[in-house]
């Protein structure tokens, strides 16, 4: 994002500097109060209150509740590090962590490769590409719940799409098999989000100066060479921003997984957000759920800070996906 200093306050400040020579201090002071002038702080209060109550307080609250016992209804009692000890020796938490990492890394790889290629493709000026692009975005119109329910039916061995091709291999119960369920989820997640990311890459490709390609052509660089030496390096910043978005977002994929598999079969898709939900809202162990919540938060903050450092730019802002 841009952080240009077009702020209104700049111009009065400049005029102070110009006035400084031989102007009485009193005038300066008068000018300075003018600088601080502006709308009253009340303008920000409603936003800060809303953000405070439903974002800042919950952030502190999740840490506090991780030290408590609570079943979601009754009294909250102090438990110290009890929940933490219990969670850190629970194989399901580590299972969730492992699954979350696999989901995050594999879907990041798959989505990035596809999005870059599709983004480059859509950035071309041919008319048919623009027409195809209109269809490419259709998955974005579906809610995660709608996608999850659709694919659950579409993948059913009885009446799903596998039957259409007459291949027995396609008629497996992919979602009911612990070996395949997570991979199916990764594909469905990619189906949902590749359109968004390819859109971002498309925009970035269009901003690459044409002169770079012209120069490359004069130097006799072929198409492949142009792609690897010009297009890819020029997409560096988009890559950093977009990867943060994908990775932080994938820490919170909940809707899709919950509706499609509910964490099963045999916990093979019980990623961390799902583990948190099941503990809190099915097993009524809010303390344990809060511990998992803190783990997700820390992961998200660490990952986005790391990516921020790696990309070496604070131009980058990430955002969360979903909710």
């Amino acid at each position: 994002m841009k952080h240009t200093n077009q702020m209104d306050g700049n111009s009065p400040r400049k005029s102070i500097c110009r006035l400084r020579k031989g102007v009485p201090a009193r005038r300066l002071a008068g000018n300075r109060t003018q600088v601080a002038k502006g709308p009253s702080m009340w303008y920000a209060v409603p936003a800060l209150v809303l953000f405070g109550v439903f974002a800042v307080v919950p952030l502190i609250g999740v840490v506090v509740l991780s030290l408590m016992n609570w079943d979601g209804l009754g009294a909250i009692t102090w438990n110290g590090l009890g929940n933490w000890k219990r969670m850190l020796s629970d194989p399901l938490v580590f299972n969730g962590l492992k699954l979350t990492l696999v989901l995050t890394v594999v879907s990041w790889l798959l989505q990035t490769v596809m999005s870059v290629l599709l983004g480059v493709f859509m950035a071309g000026s041919q008319r048919y590409r623009a027409v195809l692009a209109v269809f490419f975005f259709l998955p974005l119109l579906f809610s995660s719940t709608a996608v999850a329910i659709s694919f659950k039916n579409l993948l059913d061995p009885q009446y799903g799409i596998g039957k259409a091709f007459g291949l027995p291999w396609l008629q497996q119960n992919f979602l009911g098999n612990p070996k395949t369920a997570l991979w199916v989820l990764i594909l469905v997640v990619s189906w949902c989000f590749i359109p968004l990311h390819s859109l971002l890459y498309q925009g970035a490709v269009r901003q690459i100066p044409t002169s770079l390609y012209e120069a490359a052509k004069i130097d006799g660089a072929g198409e492949m060479r142009q792609f690897f030496s010009i297009t890819l390096p020029q997409l560096k910043y988009t890559f950093a921003t977009d990867s943060t978005l994908m990775i932080v977002g994938s820490l919170t994929y909940f809707d899709l997984v919950y509706v499609m598999t509910g964490g099963g079969p045999a916990n093979s898709t019980r990623i961390l957000p799902l583990d948190m939900y099941i503990r809190g809202f099915s097993s009524y162990d809010m303390g344990g759920a809060s511990v998992v919540g803190v783990v997700i938060l820390v992961l998200g903050i660490v990952v986005s800070q790391l990516l921020n450092k790696l990309s070496g730019t604070d131009k980058m802002e990430s955002q969360m996906e979903g909710v």
Partner: peptide, 24 residues
Amino acid sequence: RAYKLIVAGLAIPMQATIVPIYYI
């Protein structure tokens, strides 16, 4: 300060706080 506080929320997976949200 107000801007910094608000924008800091961008990189935080807020869904991790569903338990306290439910409580509130």
